[in-house]
Design a protein around this nucleic acid. Sequence first.
DNA 1: GAGTGGTCTAGACCACTGT
DNA 2: CAGTGGTCTAGACCACTCC
Lengths: 263, 263
Amino acid sequence: MSSKYDRVAADLRSKIRAGRFAPDTRLPAETDLARDYGVTVNTMRRALELLLQEGLIDKRQGAGNYVRQQRPPMVRTTERYQWEKDRVRLPADERRAAGATERDTGLNRDDLDFYAEYTQIPATAEIAAVFNVPEGTRLLRRVYHTRKRSERAPMGTGASYLVYDHIARNPDLLNAENEPWPGGTQHQLSTVGIEVGEIVDEVVARTPTPDEALVLDIPSGSAVLVLRKISIDTTGRVVEVADAIWPGSRIKLSYNTKLKAWN
Amino acid sequence: MSSKYDRVAADLRSKIRAGRFAPDTRLPAETDLARDYGVTVNTMRRALELLLQEGLIDKRQGAGNYVRQQRPPMVRTTERYQWEKDRVRLPADERRAAGATERDTGLNRDDLDFYAEYTQIPATAEIAAVFNVPEGTRLLRRVYHTRKRSERAPMGTGASYLVYDHIARNPDLLNAENEPWPGGTQHQLSTVGIEVGEIVDEVVARTPTPDEALVLDIPSGSAVLVLRKISIDTTGRVVEVADAIWPGSRIKLSYNTKLKAWN
DNA sequence: GAGTGGTCTAGACCACTGT
DNA sequence: CAGTGGTCTAGACCACTCC
């Protein structure tokens, strides 16, 4: 025997899926829905909570519950890394034309808002272990938000860590004013003689932290995809650790593995 | 001004993180916690709901709320694909020794329970598009659950699709009794003359469907990681589409990209 | 200011776990 | 069967959106 809120949710879910409520339209008020289904408002809210978690509806305080427009997620492929590396050696004006984010989203530079903040921090135990440096080593921490101009909440957020001593030779790299840097991190590293030879992506799914839920404007009971990118230079040294976080519904990662032929 | 349940959750969260409640121990009863924090039971439950979503606690009806033991997630790397391919040509007894799942988890064959179910279905529009075959084409659908013997709920679940006409030449491939097949899917395909040349992984994060939440025994407001593996043979034909689903907290995917040298 | 969702309370009853 | 979490009700008041 399933619960009342489960049955109410199932009914509403199927009605939405069947197109009985069009995308971007408002559902009846919670008090009305509750009356129609013969449950209290609290129980009705519990049912709507499930649909919210599934990404079927958006709740807007004071305005109503809206059927969510399903946007196709941005696709991020492995090839971007080689593409980024190849571009490092292009002239500056070509690099400036468009970055990797524009490539993934298919949007123009003008459609995107880019925010960066630099701070210097001592390495936590966790990050230090990845870099294989002592805890407390001076790091440059760069926090990013990427936002579509047309939207309030960012598409994604992230942080990148560099070892201060690796990059201090070029003071331009310490200044957030130079973001977005044409050519991206691989070009930045190239200005201090670092060539990236290998990149490891570690992918995890979890619910957002309270901070992330706030910044990304997503419910606490939704999913985020976390990508930790670890860049290793041609001498085997870890030169960048970057964590990128997207709402699960907005991103698809794609990885291509070529296998060696038998013959 | 944040809400009461937020503040209560934040306090409990920090106490758990600080080790004030050891892993696997029971928290005080909800009625007691509510009294201590000066809120009603309903509000207390709402705070606990947040910690549940974050994976900090487990709720067990009738027994209590338990601080969750953080298990290190299983790591699944790209190298598994080449490894699997290399094994196809080994003698049967060596292949039988251990499969890819055992390799990822570091567990023995005896610690794992493997369940497979085969059915034949007509291709849905969505799957047909990936295979690039007409909708309704006959497919073999193989549903899997992998479970640690010591646990009730499966570690992960998944479904694999093969085009019936590709594999019908070998009747052994149509029978779930032959699972787990030594050497895995790549070996199965090799018995009908198919050599896999390329594998594309598509990774997505979302909340579980009601079904998945039930089978995996996870809350509806948690995250699952979904991997769609698309295998392409050496002639460029899609030969397998497989969806694997894990609770987000139990899996980490790792992908290694080697970049071409500049010189 | 009317209408909407968000928070919180108080309390009843049910379902499950352990002893 | 005592104790625990799960469901549901009824109603008050607050915060926000939009006209």
